[in-house]
Simulated scan of single mutants.
Amino acid sequence: MGPSEHSLSEVSFLTVAEVAALMRVSKMTVYRLVHSGELPAIRVGRSFRVPEESVYAYLRDAYVQTA
């Protein structure tokens, strides 16, 4: 079930700083992912909020297994 299939009361949103800490990347990297559309987000005022499940889906899809 994707983030769009949950009711809003069930969706947990993260700030860009929280996503950056979770992914261990810079905030600028998260902004690039959001602006490119690779990481879905909503705009709240002047800031972005990213559904927590979208972060895990992105990481799961981006995972590359090495030999």
Results as ranks from 00 to 15, higher is better:
Arg46Asp: 09
Val50Gln: 05
Ile42Gln: 03
Arg49His: 09
Ala41Gln: 01
Tyr31Thr: 01
Glu5Thr: 12
Val64Gly: 00
Arg46Pro: 02
Gly37Phe: 00
Ala67Lys: 04
Ala21Trp: 04
Gln65Glu: 06
His35Leu: 09
Val34Cys: 05
Gly37Thr: 02
Glu10Phe: 06
Glu52Ser: 15
Leu39Ile: 07
Val44Gln: 07
Ser47Pro: 00
Pro40Gly: 08
Ala67Tyr: 01
Ser26Trp: 06
Gly2Ile: 12
Ser54His: 00
Arg60Cys: 04
Arg49Gln: 10
Val50Ala: 04
Val64Met: 01
Ala62Pro: 00
Leu39Asp: 08
Phe13Glu: 05
Ser26Gly: 15
Phe48Gly: 01
Ala17Gln: 12
Val11Glu: 06
Gln65Ser: 03
Thr29His: 14
Leu8Asn: 11
Tyr56Val: 06
Ser4Lys: 14
Val50Gly: 06
Leu33Met: 13
Phe48Lys: 04
Val50Lys: 01
Ala57Tyr: 05
Glu38Asn: 13
Ser26His: 14
Pro3Ser: 12
Gly37Ser: 00
Ala17Phe: 03
Val25Phe: 11
Glu18Gly: 09
Ser12Cys: 11
Ala21Pro: 02
His6Gly: 02
Ser26Glu: 14
Pro51His: 09
Ala21Gly: 09
Val34Trp: 03
Val30Pro: 05
Pro51Tyr: 11
Met1Cys: 03
Ala57Gln: 14
Pro51Ser: 07
Ala17Asp: 14
Ile42Leu: 05
Thr29Asp: 08
Glu52Pro: 01
Glu10Met: 08
Leu33Phe: 05
Pro51Gln: 07
Arg46Met: 09
Lys27Asp: 13
Ser9Ala: 12
Tyr58Met: 04
Thr66Met: 03
His35Tyr: 10
Leu22Asn: 12
Leu8Thr: 06
Glu18Leu: 10
Pro51Trp: 05
Val34Glu: 01
Ser4Gly: 07
Leu59Gly: 02
Ala20His: 11
Ala20Ser: 13
Glu18Thr: 10
Met1Asp: 05
Ala20Val: 12
Tyr63Arg: 10
